[in-house]
Design a protein around this nucleic acid. Sequence first.
DNA 1: GGTAGGATTCTCT
DNA 2: GAGAATCCTACCA
Length: 184
Amino acid sequence: MDAAFFERPAATVAAELIGHVLLVEGVGGAIVETEAYDRTDPASHSFSGPTKRNASMFGPPGRAYVYRSYGLHWCLNLVCEPGSAVLLRALAPTQGLDTMRARRGLADPRRLCAGPGRLAQALGIDSLYDGLPLDRMPFAWGAPEGPVSVAATTRIGITKGADTPWRFLLAGSAFVSRPLPKSR
DNA sequence: GGTAGGATTCTCT
DNA sequence: GAGAATCCTACCA
């Protein structure tokens, strides 16, 4: 996984990330759910231009953008083209299950990383990871083990641009935060 | 200096 | 299924 992978539209990167394995300090699993955001998207933090908070989104591609949601949760994004990013919403845990269980205080692997906040907590993501390059430690990547079936739907939990079909998930996976886009 | 908003999750009924 | 919890950042005065 080199930086060039991310130097493309967020929606393209988001779709191709499905099935890839992401490890943070040896803990992680296969990505099963992502969302794309870019500069022209009213739901994106970058829509109103660069600010101190979203500075990472306008930095070099292939970096992490970490932000706080509702004052409680951390969300991990992967920066693509300037002003665009891919939000990791869920992954299927494969490495470091014990570590994730301990961090989440939860045994059910299906709920371990199903959702942006849960995923970040399970991987130990916090503000210290904001702006870190994704092509070196503590991040590690693996290619999909086989063919993946990617489904595109509308995004979740946002108030603007909610009809843009930029949520990508691994079809049939039991680890996504929501199998189908219902009202939320 | 003060206020509003935010891409969520958990718990209880 | 509905409601509460919680805190940092941006923006306006």
